[in-house]
Design a protein around this nucleic acid. Structure first.
Lengths: 220, 220
DNA sequence: AAAAAAATTTAGGGCTGTCTAAAAATGTAT
DNA sequence: ATACATTTTTAGACAGCCCTAAATTTTTTT
C-alpha cells in the first residue's frame, strides 16, 4: 500500500521533531508543525499506527517504527536533493527553495531520485548544510556547534543553519554569511550576547544572539 | 482559487481530446481517459463549469473556456518541459518519462517552470516531437504528415509520434526509428499496407501500417 | 491530594473525488 | 414513430483529511 502525500509529511515531521535521540513527539507539536488541529493529528496517528509506521499509545506521544523511519528518510532525501537541484542547476537562492522542494519531495519514482542524485554528483549536503541520507537511508549526523558556543577569539567555519525561514536566510545573505565562510569572534557583549565577528579575515559585522544561535559551525 | 491536481488533469485531457478543431468532448471519452466512471466525470464537469473553466450543457459534451484553455496549456507546458529535462539531463529513455512527467506537471511554481525552461534552453519540442507551449500559452501547431501518407519513392524526416505507449516507443528504438532520421519509402505492400523503408540512406526495414500510421514526418 | 490547567481524544460533521444503481435523455433501427 | 440501445445524469454512499465542541486523561499548582 502506498503512503499518501499527507502521510509522508507527517512521517517527515515526526522525524524532524524527534531529533537524533528519537524523542517522543507530542500531538500538539505535530499540530503546530502540520498547521492542523490536534484532533486531526490524532486521526492521522491512529492511521499511521495501523499501518505500522509509528509506535503510538494514546496520550503518550509517538515515535517512528523502523519502517516509518525508512519512509521519512526517503522523503527527506528527496527534499534535500531537489533543493540542491534548484540551487545548483536552476539558480534559485537558498531562501527560495523550501516550498518548492516541499512539493517535489512527494514525487514517487525511485529511479528518478537515483538519477537525480547521480546528476548532482551525489551531494552530501543540501544548500542549508543539512546532510542528505543515502539511498539506503543512512544519514551522517554532523556534530556542528552553534556559533553562539564559540568562545571569544576563536575561529570557526560556517557549516549550516538551524532556522530555515526566508527572512533569516536573506538576513544572512545581506550580512555576507554564507556556508563555508570563516568566522572569528572578535567581541561579545555580556548584556545581550550580541557579538562582533570577522568574516574571512575581512570585514567585521555585528550580529545578535538570535543569529549566532541559529548558525552552525565547525571549530578551527 | 487554486485548481486541484485532479482538475488540472481533466483540463489537460479535455484539451488533448478536443484536438486542434476544438471538438466537443463526451463524458464517456473522459471517463475512459481518466480511468473513472462516467458518473464521476459528470460531477467534475459540473464543478469545472462552475469555476468557469469549461462550457458545459447537460448531455451535450464539453469544451474548454478561454480560461480553461490557459490552464490546460500551462499543464501541458510543464509536462513537456519536464519530459525534456528527464531525457536530456537525467538520461531517461523517451519511453520512460510519461508517468513521471504526469506527476511533475502539477508542481505549482511559475518561477520554477520559467527557470526550468531557461535551463533547458527554451526547447520547442518535447522528446516525442510534441510542441511545447510558451509562457503565454502559444503553442505552434506543426502540420506533420503520417508516414503512411508519404508516397512510394519519396523521402521524409521523422518529426514525432502519435502513439506514446512505452511498447510502441521501444519498438521504434529497436527499429532504429528516432526523431530526425530520414526515411525513404522503398516499397508498399498493397494487401496490408506494410512497407519497406530505408533509414538515413542506410539500413532498410519492414514496418507495419500500424507503425507507419503512428509516425509523424515532414516531407523532403 | 484536591483543584485547576493543559494536553489529548472522541463525537459528529464537511468537502473532495470516487463509486454503484437507477433514472432520464438522446440516438438508432425497424 | 415507436421501441430498443446507448449515453449521461441523479441519488445515495464511502474514504481521506480536515474541522469544532465536548469529554477524558495527564500534568501542574496550591
Amino acid at each position: 500500500m502506498q503512503n499518501s502525500f499527507t502521510e509522508e509529511n507527517y512521517l517527515k515531521i515526526i522525524h524532524n521533531l524527534s531529533g537524533r535521540d528519537d524523542l517522543e513527539v507530542s500531538t500538539n507539536a505535530l499540530a503546530e508543525s502540520t498547521a492542523t488541529r490536534a484532533a486531526s493529528v490524532t486521526d492521522m496517528l491512529r492511521k499511521l499506527a495501523e499501518k505500522g509506521l509509528i509506535h503510538y499509545k494514546k496520550y503518550q506521544g509517538v515515535r517512528l517504527t523502523e519502517e516509518g523511519q525508512k519512509v521519512a528518510l526517503k522523503v527527506i532525501r528527496k527534499h534535500r536533493l531537489w533543493e540542491v537541484f534548484l540551487v545548483e542547476k536552476l539558480g534559485f537562492g537558498w531562501d527560495e527553495v523550501h516550498d518548492i522542494a516541499e512539493e517535489l519531495e512527494h514525487i514517487p519514482s525511485d529511479r528518478l531520485v537515483e538519477r537525480l542524485d547521480a546528476y548532482l554528483d551525489h551531494p552530501q549536503f543540501d544548500p542549508h548544510g543539512d546532510p542528505i541520507p543515502d539511498a539506503k537511508g543512512n544519514m551522517p549526523a554532523p556534530d556542528y556547534l552553534k556559533l553562539s558556543d564559540i568562545p571569544l577569539g576563536h575561529r570557526a567555519l560556517m557549516m549550516g543553519v538551524l532556522e530555515h525561514t526566508p527572512a533569516f536566510l536573506q538576513h544572512l545573505d545581506r550580512s555576507g554569511l554564507t556556508l563555508g565562510c570563516e568566522i572569528e569572534i572578535k567581541e561579545v557583549n555580556e548584556f545581550d550576547k550580541s557579538a562582533q565577528i570577522q568574516i574571512n579575515s575581512q570585514r567585521t559585522l555585528f550580529i545578535s544572539q538570535e543569529v549566532s544561535r541559529n548558525v552552525l559551525v565547525q571549530r578551527l
